[in-house]
C-alpha cells in the first residue's frame, strides 16, 4: 500500500464524491417527484394516463440504468435531443427511480384502508385534504422501508455514470488505474469513499424506518 499516493489523490476522490452525491440527490429528488405523481395516477386509475404510467413503470423497472443512459446520451442526440453528461445522469436516475418509487408509493396508498377515505369524506374533508392529511401520512409510513431501500439502490446505481463520461468515483478510479497502475490504492480509495457516502445513508434509513413504524402503530 502506497500511502503517499493515497494522500496525494484524496482531493481528486473528494471532488468525484461530491459530484456523485450532487447528481445522486438531484436525480433521487426528481425520482421521488415522478414517483409520487405516477403513484397517485396509478392508484386512482386515471383513464389513459394510468395506462401510460403503468407502461412507463414496467419499462423503467425492467431495463438496466446503463442501457437507459446509453440511449439518452448516445441515442437521443441523433434525433435532436441533446443532453450534457450531468443532465443525462440525472434524467436516467429520475427515469429509473421514478418507476421504482411509483410502485412503492402506489402499494403504500393501497395499504391504507378504504374506511380511512370514507371517514375523511364523512368528516367533510375534500379530496385534496383527504390525500394530504389522511392518506399520504399513513401511506408514507407503510412504504418507508421500501422507500429507503430505493434511495440506497439509486445511490448505488450512480456508479454507472462513468459510462457516459461523468467524472464520478468510478471514473476517477478507472482513470488512476489506467495512468499509474496503482490498482490496490485506487480501489481502496474507491471503496472507502463509497462507504463514506452509503453507510450514513443506510444508518439514517434504518432510523427513519423505525420511526415510521412507530407512527404506523401509534406506540
Amino acid at each position: 500500500m502506497d500511502w503517499k499516493f493515497i494522500a496525494e489523490y484524496i482531493p481528486l476522490y473528494q471532488e468525484a464524491a461530491a459530484l456523485t452525491v450532487k447528481i445522486g440527490i438531484a436525480g433521487i429528488a426528481a425520482a421521488i417527484g415522478t414517483g409520487l405523481v405516477c403513484g397517485m395516477i396509478g392508484y386512482y386509475r386515471v383513464p389513459v394516463l394510468g395506462r401510460i404510467v403503468s407502461a412507463y413503470v414496467e419499462l423503467s423497472r425492467n431495463t438496466p440504468l446503463l442501457i437507459q443512459l446509453f440511449f439518452i446520451y448516445y441515442g437521443l442526440p441523433k434525433i435532436g435531443i441533446r443532453t450534457d453528461a450531468k443532465a443525462c445522469g440525472m434524467a436516467g436516475l429520475a427515469f429509473l427511480g421514478g418507476g421504482y418509487m411509483a410502485e412503492t408509493f402506489r402499494s403504500g396508498i393501497e395499504a391504507v384502508d378504504a374506511i380511512q377515505e370514507e371517514s375523511a369524506c364523512s368528516l367533510g374533508l375534500n379530496k385534496v385534504q383527504t390525500i394530504w392529511y389522511v392518506i399520504l401520512p399513513q401511506a408514507l409510513a407503510v412504504s418507508m422501508p421500501a422507500f429507503v431501500a430505493n434511495v440506497i439502490f439509486l445511490l448505488k446505481e450512480t456508479s454507472v455514470f462513468s459510462a457516459v463520461s461523468l467524472m464520478d468515483l468510478m471514473f476517477t478510479a478507472k482513470d488512476l488505474i489506467g495512468i499509474y497502475y496503482n490498482t490496490t490504492e485506487s480501489l481502496f480509495l474507491l471503496v472507502i469513499f463509497y462507504l463514506l457516502i452509503l453507510l450514513p445513508v443506510s444508518v439514517l434509513g434504518s432510523i427513519l424506518e423505525r420511526r415510521a413504524r412507530y407512527a404506523g402503530f401509534g406506540t
Binding site: M170, I177, T183, T184, L187, Y194, L198
Partner: peptide, 19 residues
C-alpha cells in the same frame, strides 16, 4: 449489500488479479 455491484466487479477483476 452496500457496495455498488460495479465496484465489486472492479475489486475482483482488477483488484484481486493484481494482488
Amino acid at each position: 449489500r452496500i457496495m455498488p455491484q460495479l465496484v465489486l466487479l472492479f475489486l475482483v477483476y482488477f483488484g484481486t488479479t493484481r494482488s
